[in-house]
């Protein structure tokens, strides 16, 4: 963990790293990204996330992740990274014509 993650000015100012916050809204749902915050360590990040993002029962579980530890695909929506899923129409149920009178399928 380095002190200058935010690339900030002023050495006199203690810099806290950026954490991304994920909240599980209720049991049975995935954790969803809700925002970010700065904190000196993981424990404080969790506490701050609770105070900031769940003041009204918005969650039953929180994850905090150092932003610098997240590896992301490139932002472009036409990214060739996603090409493998674009041309496989046979992965979708609509690819298969079934007569109307076949029930429950």
């Amino acid at each position: 963990m380095s002190d200058d993650v935010t690339g900030a000015t002023g050495a006199a100012r203690p810099e806290w790293p950026l954490y991304e916050v994920f909240v599980r809204g209720k049991r049975g749902l995935n954790h969803v990204h809700v925002g970010s915050l700065h904190a000196p360590d993981r424990t404080m990040a969790l506490h701050n996330a609770r105070n900031l993002y769940t003041r009204r029962n918005e969650g039953v579980s929180i994850w905090v992740v150092l932003a610098q530890d997240i590896t992301a695909s490139s932002p472009d929506e036409k990214d060739p990274f996603f090409a493998p899923s674009g041309d496989k129409v046979y992965r979708h149920p609509t690819f298969y014509p079934i007569p109307e009178d076949v029930p429950h399928i």
Partner: peptide
Amino acid sequence: AKVQDEAGHGLYLYAAAETLGVDRADLTE
């Protein structure tokens, strides 16, 4: 509770501003 919410609003927005490549401590400054 209301005033605490306003602090929260400020923090949501600083977080949004930081995604544009600025630094929160710098904005406070």
